[in-house]
Amino acid sequence: MGAWLYILRCSDGSYYTGTTRADLERRVAEQQAGHFAGYTQTRTPVVLAYSEYFDRITNAIAAERQIKGWSRAKKEALMAGDFARLGLLARTRRSSSAHGSRRGAARRSSP
């Protein structure tokens, strides 16, 4: 049984990413009505900004977890279907994290 991955644009401009095996329109209506305690309940109205169907629920959940870790810019590129920008943003993040601070680096002790 498959599942939907979806991104909602909330009234405060934030994004909520979720998955459902249920009918997508019904799930969005439930989110809109505040049926689920949590993030979207106090951020209605919500608008469906992106959806993608997966043949397997495990793939939808894996994509949800990945997207939840993305920057706002990457989410917006995905929603716009701008895959070139999405790839560029992914490369930019990888290269910046490779040159980031070196926390926990060993300190030299004085002789």
Rank of each mutant, 00 (worst) to 15 (best):
A90P: 06
G13C: 06
A60L: 10
R27E: 02
A90Y: 06
D23M: 08
C10R: 01
R93N: 09
W4D: 00
T58P: 11
A3Q: 02
P45Q: 02
I67G: 07
T17V: 09
A37R: 15
V28G: 01
A98P: 07
S95R: 13
A3Y: 00
A80I: 12
A80F: 08
R108K: 11
F54N: 08
R56W: 10
G100A: 08
R102N: 13
A84K: 07
P111Y: 09
Q32N: 07
F54V: 10
T92N: 14
A60Q: 06
T42C: 15
G38M: 10
D55K: 10
H35R: 14
S14Q: 12
G2E: 03
I57N: 07
T19E: 02
Y50E: 02
R65V: 08
E52N: 15
A49Q: 02
A77P: 01
A106H: 14
L8S: 01
G38Q: 09
R65P: 06
R72F: 08
S101C: 07
A49L: 04
T20P: 01
E25C: 09
G81C: 05
T17C: 08
S11M: 00
Y50I: 04
T20H: 06
T92F: 11
G87M: 05
T20F: 03
G104E: 13
S11E: 02
L88E: 06
R21A: 14
Q31G: 02
H99S: 15
A77L: 05
R103Y: 10
S97D: 13
D12K: 03
